[in-house]
């Protein structure tokens, strides 16, 4: 019975993130539009776009293989599973012990691997440019992310996100320099991984510097809908990780009952609103950088994470 109830909460989390992800992306877009003194599309626009794409036929390139057709399902499923393992409104959910944060990073790596292969599958120059640059960005962003993960795990003595969030919630961690470095590093990685400004611009097509959009150029219909949904989920994942690790207040603990869960959902929505607002302000205030400046940006993230880890290695005794 208890397991059934825990499963139900876990399924609620999966449904919640799936329902929230397009809304969150739409919210960021709306805030950006307002900052630019535009009306902006309605909040529900991303849902409409997904539904429209789902209704459309798929146009496959002649040279597309099964990798191209299978990849969207795998990318969507892997990203969805990864985000449902991250604590959003509650920690210690039943599936959260299946994968720690290193495994979550690796799951996102699996999704990216498939996406980059799909970019190469049709055999066009745009797909290749996107895949090549995506893997360049990933080859620096993933180590930077792992360094941040190392910092957090060393502080909390655990690589489980639930345990890290619980330990950050307890006051004995205190303010540490490493945490600040890790936060900056993680934000930089999140911007790069989600193809946000200043690394990539999610709102462009046919720009020589585009990365993510170039990879998915050949996709259409339901396949494109799945890939777009996966991108929204990934954005939500990074914001949720930052929220649960660095701002763990108000998160419910598994088994506390429905009232705590609802309170947790409320707090989570507030955190998302704040995080999305900050993201929109940041994106509006900064310009996009050239592709070959990106390694410098991510190298800085890697160094920040490395410094944070090194500091902990030196200061943590025994």
């Amino acid at each position: 019975m208890a397991i059934g109830l825990q499963l139900l909460v876990q399924i609620c989390q999966m449904a919640l993130v799936l329902a929230l992800a397009p809304l969150f992306a739409g919210y960021v877009r709306k805030v950006k539009a307002h900052l630019l003194r535009r009306q902006g599309p309605p909040l529900a626009q991303h849902y409409r776009e997904l539904l429209r794409l789902l209704r459309k036929d798929v146009v496959l390139a002649d040279s597309a293989s099964w990798v191209f057709r299978v990849a969207p399902y795998l990318i969507f499923a892997t990203t969805w599973v990864a985000v449902s393992l991250v604590p959003t409104f509650a920690i210690g959910l039943i599936f959260s012990y299946a994968a720690d944060v290193i495994a979550i990073v690796a799951l996102l790596g699996s999704a990216r691997f498939m996406l980059a292969l799909a970019g190469l599958d049709v055999g066009t120059s745009f797909g290749g440019i996107g895949s090549s640059r995506e893997m360049l960005i990933a080859s620096l962003a993933e180590p930077a992310m792992l360094m941040v993960v190392f910092t957090l795990s060393l502080l909390a003595g655990s690589t489980q996100l639930s345990s890290i969030a619980a330990s950050m919630q307890a006051s004995d961690v205190g303010l540490r320099f490493s945490i600040a470095l890790a936060l900056i590093g993680l934000v930089m990685v999140a911007l790069a991984e989600n193809a946000r400004i200043p690394i990539d611009n999610p709102a462009t097509h046919l720009e020589l510097t585009m990365v993510h959009e170039a990879m998915i150029l050949e996709y259409s219909g339901r396949h494109l809908a799945l890939i777009e949904a996966a991108a929204y989920l990934k954005l939500l994942l990074y914001v949720s990780v930052i929220a649960c690790v660095f701002f763990p207040w108000g998160i419910a603990i598994s088994g506390q009952g429905p009232a705590a869960y609802f309170a947790g959902i409320g707090v989570y929505l507030l955190k998302l609103a704040a995080g999305g607002f900050l993201l929109a302000v940041f994106e509006t205030a900064i310009a996009k950088m050239r592709v070959f400046r990106v390694p410098d940006f991510l190298g800085a993230a890697l160094m920040l994470g490395f410094l944070a880890t090194l500091l902990l290695f030196v200061t943590l005794a025994g």
């Binding site: 036929d57 798929v58 146009v59 496959l60 745009f126 150029l217 050949e218 219909g221 809908a225």
Partner: peptide, 14 residues
């Protein structure tokens, strides 16, 4: 629920 139709054509490539 979604459209299950797939068509083949030349690659778009922008």
């Amino acid at each position: 629920w979604a459209s299950g139709v797939s068509r083949r054509s030349a690659p778009w490539d922008c």
